[in-house]
Computed example of a mutant assay.
Amino acid sequence: MGSPLGDFVRARRDSIQPASLGLPDHGRRRSPGLRRSDLAARAGISVEYLTRLEQGRDRNPSIPVVNALADALGLDPPEREHLRYLTKITGGACSAHARPAPPRRQVRGPVLETLRLLEPGVAMVTNRLGDVLAHTSGFAAVTSRTGLLDAEAPNVTRYVFTDPRARTFFADWEAVADEQAFDLWLAPSVENSEWFAAELAPVAGPDFTRRLHRHLVPPRGPLRLAHPSGHELRLLRETLELSSDAQQLVVFLPADDATAGALGELRRRHHGGLQAIS
């Protein structure tokens, strides 16, 4: 049985071409990428120890070993942060079979007031599982007729992977799917993440499970939306971490004048106000 840490190291090793590190190409192999022996030599650890890490038989590497692996794999700062996070959570295994206590769904009054001040802008409060906990009328206008808010407890991750309309609404669906799968690793708790992933996998299929274990740190560029009304929107995202609540306040800003004009038209058509979903 593997581990999140081992899966990430193996995925990054498989993605590296030996020639990019000045290493010889040993010809056809059963698996792509860098040989385990080459990575172990670059990190200054034994092949046996690297094997145990990748297979999940060793779950508590030291900080120097983690840093050496990051250097050997050539990780950029976001990938290094993810490696450290996976090292932290891998040390305490948990079961995905029993549903843990659900994450907090209530949004504190001051946060709702902040959201109200953003009206009629486009903003929502969410968590890393993708639950939409509160939103402005501007957010409702942007997502109108897409199905995203149709559920009693809307969830962006579930919508992306299970609703066919999402593949049309999100012009860069592949990138959005990468983001949503990656964010599950940063869920309110490891137990929440594992339970949610286990529940979603049977209905979401390989598009979800492949991304979940690939540990690809997404770049998070502008969000491109193809609204059913015919408007094409390009939105910048600013995320404010509400760390004490394990929630995020996400504000969507127009990336160009055309989007700003389209948002104004969508808001004029939509009637509604701030909504908290509990």
Results as ranks from 00 to 15, higher is better:
235 L>E: 08
159 Y>T: 00
78 P>I: 09
90 T>E: 05
217 V>Y: 06
31 S>E: 11
264 G>R: 05
78 P>D: 07
273 G>W: 11
178 D>E: 14
233 L>G: 04
178 D>W: 02
197 A>S: 14
225 L>P: 03
228 P>W: 07
42 R>C: 05
247 Q>H: 08
3 S>Q: 11
225 L>C: 04
45 I>M: 15
108 R>L: 14
275 Q>T: 15
43 A>M: 07
232 E>V: 13
34 L>G: 09
115 L>S: 02
275 Q>K: 15
78 P>T: 06
30 R>N: 14
136 T>P: 02
101 A>I: 12
128 R>G: 14
241 E>A: 15
193 S>T: 06
131 D>W: 00
126 T>Q: 14
96 A>S: 15
157 T>E: 05
21 L>Y: 03
24 P>Q: 07
274 L>T: 01
227 H>G: 12
35 R>A: 05
277 I>H: 06
49 Y>V: 05
166 A>R: 02
155 N>A: 02
186 L>W: 07
171 A>I: 09
139 F>A: 10
103 P>Y: 14
230 G>H: 08
207 D>Y: 06
200 L>G: 07
119 E>H: 09
168 T>K: 06
263 L>C: 14
105 R>Q: 15
258 A>N: 08
258 A>I: 03
252 F>V: 05
68 A>F: 08
60 N>E: 13
264 G>N: 12
32 P>I: 01
24 P>W: 09
132 V>F: 00
136 T>H: 01
92 G>L: 08
266 L>Q: 14
129 L>A: 02
187 A>L: 01
34 L>R: 04
142 V>L: 00
43 A>W: 03
220 R>Q: 13
259 T>G: 04
96 A>K: 10
156 V>M: 14
100 P>Y: 02
182 F>Y: 13
187 A>S: 08
91 G>W: 09
225 L>N: 01
214 R>S: 12
144 S>C: 11
1 M>P: 11
172 D>R: 09
24 P>N: 06
15 S>L: 08
201 A>Q: 05
268 R>T: 12
269 R>K: 12
123 A>L: 07
